[in-house]
Structures are given as C-alpha cells and as structure tokens.
C-alpha cells in the first residue's frame, strides 16, 4: 500500500533522515518507534509532502507521490493525523469534519459524520462545540475522525497517545484497532512502547534518522529499551 525507498530529508544543512526503506500493507499497523528527534515526525511530514522533497521514492497504491503537494496526496487517499492534533479550534466539530470531507473512494470505507459519531460516541454528543473547547482526548478523537472524512486507504498517525491520560489512551487504541479491522493501512509513530505493543503488527526502530532494526515488535522492542 505504502512503499518508501531511500527516503532522506534535511533541515537546512542538518540531515535528519538517511535512506529510510519500509513498506506498509493494507490491514496492518506498522509502528515507527524512536525517541523525539529520531526523525519519526519528519518522516511522516515528508511522506505527506509537508517538507520539501529531498531524495527517495515514495509510492502509494503503486503511484509515485514524492513530488506531489500535500493536498494531492491527501486526495489519493492518504490521511495524516499530526502529533499536535492541530484541530481547527475556531471551528465546530461538524465544521472540522467538513474540512476533511472528500468524495467517496473505491476500495475504501465511505465515512459520514453519522458513521464517525458511532465510532466516537462522545464526539456525537458535542457536534456544535468549538474545537478549542475540547479536552486533549476529545481533540485526538476529532483529529482522527477528521482525517477519516477523506475516506483514506491509509493513515499516518503521529503519537496519538502523547499527553493523554492512560484511560483515554485505551479508548484511542480501541478506535485504531477498529480501523485496522476495516482494512485500513496504519503507519503509527510512537515512542511509547506500551501503546505500540497493543497495536503494532510490525515495527521499525528509528535512531538518529536511520532505521536501526525492523521486524516483529518483540524483536525491535528489546533494542529500543536499550537506547
């Protein structure tokens, strides 16, 4: 589904990603593990076209996307949920969803606000609330729901559990599992092992911009703990 070959990136003169290679398939959760500054968020932004192209080849559903602007990539069915959530705080829940809306897509679930309110019942209870008046956990749900409005075939999730109370983290994990069951491809950036353990089928360990190890979560996990 998502294929990354030789991906590099740099801020100014400082190179932050070196030749990343990985593949994520439909219906699976691939975790990118690593501490802050290891390059996880940069990799996601780079895939999403939010950072200027450097080198490497990114294919999504077979098509090259590495030279496309973000909105084109999103319209191909790749969704992105950033680390800071980036809810539109002046817009209501419904309006936030409207921004993410795209036409139905072949080979992907067709999401409507009502279907999303079934997946995230507490969002359904606050449809007119402004994004800025929601708690961190609610914003996280909205960020995921907003991306689903684009009927994506794959989503990039950047640390969805960061800063949330353990009890809310469980709800987020539940929702991600549900999406996976529906056949979505999920690329999950995570530094929290405990959370990744609940969800990931496979993992890559990122260290200083390089993939240090990849494979099953158990194999990668032991290396990560030693960092």
């Amino acid at each position: 589904m998502l294929e990354v070959r030789g991906l590099s990136a740099a801020y100014g003169k400082a190179q932050v990603l070196f030749e990343l290679d990985f593949v994520a398939h439909a219906g699976e959760v691939l975790a990118l593990l690593g501490r802050n500054g290891a390059g996880k968020s940069t990799a996601l932004k780079r895939i999403m076209g939010l950072l200027p192209p450097r080198t490497g080849e990114i294919r999504f559903g077979g098509a090259r996307i590495d030279a496309l602007p973000p909105f084109r990539i999103a319209r191909l069915g790749l969704g992105y949920v950033p680390e800071e959530r980036r809810i539109f705080t002046d817009l209501s829940v419904r309006e936030n969803l409207e921004v993410g809306r795209q036409p139905p897509r072949d080979g992907a679930a067709h999401w409507t606000p009502d279907r999303l309110f079934e997946l995230f019942p507490n969002l359904g209870r606050m449809q007119d609330r402004l994004g800025g008046r929601m708690s961190g956990g609610e914003q996280q749900m909205l960020a995921v729901a907003r991306t689903l409005m684009g009927n994506p075939r794959a989503i990039l999730l950047d640390e969805p559990a960061e800063g949330l109370a353990p009890i809310v983290v469980e709800q987020v994990a539940l929702a991600i599992r549900e999406l996976k069951a529906q056949g979505l491809c999920v690329l999950l950036c995570e530094q929290n092992l405990h959370f990744a353990r609940q969800l990931a089928d496979r993992a890559c360990l990122l260290e200083q911009g390089r993939i240090r190890a990849s494979g099953t979560l158990e194999a990668v996990e032991s290396l990560y703990a030693m960092v």
């Binding site: 939010l50 973000p70 909105f71 817009l91 309006e95 684009g150």
Partner: peptide, 24 residues
Amino acid sequence: TRWGTLVRAATQDRDMANALGVDQ
C-alpha cells in the same frame, strides 16, 4: 458555505488544511 469553512480552517492552520486535501 464550504468555501467559507475552508477559508476559516486555512486561516488557522493552512498546512493542516493542505494535508486534509484542501487545495491552497
């Protein structure tokens, strides 16, 4: 209008709107 919603969204965070498929 949808145009207005998109304008207000982009006013706040244009990169995010872009990543959601809005042609800036």
